[in-house]
Design a protein around this nucleic acid. Sequence first.
DNA 1: TTAAGCAGTGAATCGCGATTCACTGCTTAG
DNA 2: CTAAGCAGTGAATCGCGATTCACTGCTTAA
Lengths: 191, 191
Amino acid sequence: MDAQRAAILEAAVELLAEHGYVGCSMSGVAARAGIATGGVYRHFSGKAELVAELFRVVVSREVAAVEQAAAGSGDLTSRIVAVVETFAGRALKAPRLAYALLAEPVDAVVEQERLVFRRKFAEVFTKWVEEGMRAGVLPRQDAALTAAALVGAVAEVLVGPLAAGSADPDTIPSLVTFTVRALGGNDARNA
Amino acid sequence: MDAQRAAILEAAVELLAEHGYVGCSMSGVAARAGIATGGVYRHFSGKAELVAELFRVVVSREVAAVEQAAAGSGDLTSRIVAVVETFAGRALKAPRLAYALLAEPVDAVVEQERLVFRRKFAEVFTKWVEEGMRAGVLPRQDAALTAAALVGAVAEVLVGPLAAGSADPDTIPSLVTFTVRALGGNDARNA
DNA sequence: TTAAGCAGTGAATCGCGATTCACTGCTTAG
DNA sequence: CTAAGCAGTGAATCGCGATTCACTGCTTAA
């Protein structure tokens, strides 16, 4: 059965959310999953495979949350607002996890997954930027670059608060303002 | 004498630029500096101290380059252009080093230094954003947040090319355009 | 000239987590 | 009922880089 595989992954997710990547030792994950160290190797070829899949699981949850949030609202601006609010809001609610996803040092294998993570978000943004340009709401621009830049911008702004402790309550609104301005959206051009 | 300390650091810088953080093992650095492993411990209490100082050295060079580039030009826009061009240009010329500075996984001690690095750049930006607001060239905004966001944006856009191989030659101009627009600068609002 | 002291040596040791493996039960097909 | 096979055990082993340390030479001051 593969319920165990899922259970082990869930244990790893918990540890990641509690203690970050360092907390995800094979023995730690095994213990949390309620099995012995060696048991993990029945389901994963090694740490690399476990961790890669761990990241994939967590990332797809985040991407799904963001896409769903965006799907709800209508015009471009409210979509972007929804994306940033969801992304940032979730990050601030699960700081340890967000930090692990965005910035925490990990080994090379995982780093690849992290790049994938960021690229996925960037792709979501790219889609909307292109749509905005077609609709004439946004100025001409390199959509992929803008998207990557926005992902970086949001991540960077969040990492400070995440690494420290608390965040200014204005962080999210300010971030939204920045995003809209950076896109060149025709409302909210100032303030 | 402390010429040796400097020589060891320089060896570490070389290794960092060639092979990234992973290349900076104590024995590797010692070998490159032309001394035996143990010798390094005459000058540094341990790896943590060595690496922290290594980062400080490299970072201060980068910050100095950027500040100098900005000091040359006159109006706000050209300063910003200079900053982004310098920062990105240097990064693309020394990709391994830039990657190590911006994104490569490292241990906790170094991570602190990395945050310092990014904060320093953000501070440089903050100064100019505030100046721009005073001069009425830029709209009201949370200067520190904008600055952090821009550092993140530039870093993120660069990490892709750095991790892969080559960069689109339009990367830097596009980045400059993005930056100006994100600041809300009154020229270059589109295109 | 002698002795203290410092830079440097490099093999041995440590620490730490990943990985292995001989072994224990349970489950299930024949 | 029996034997194969699979999930799981957990102590031993590995790998790897940081760190230590007894020892070697050079330099310098008395």
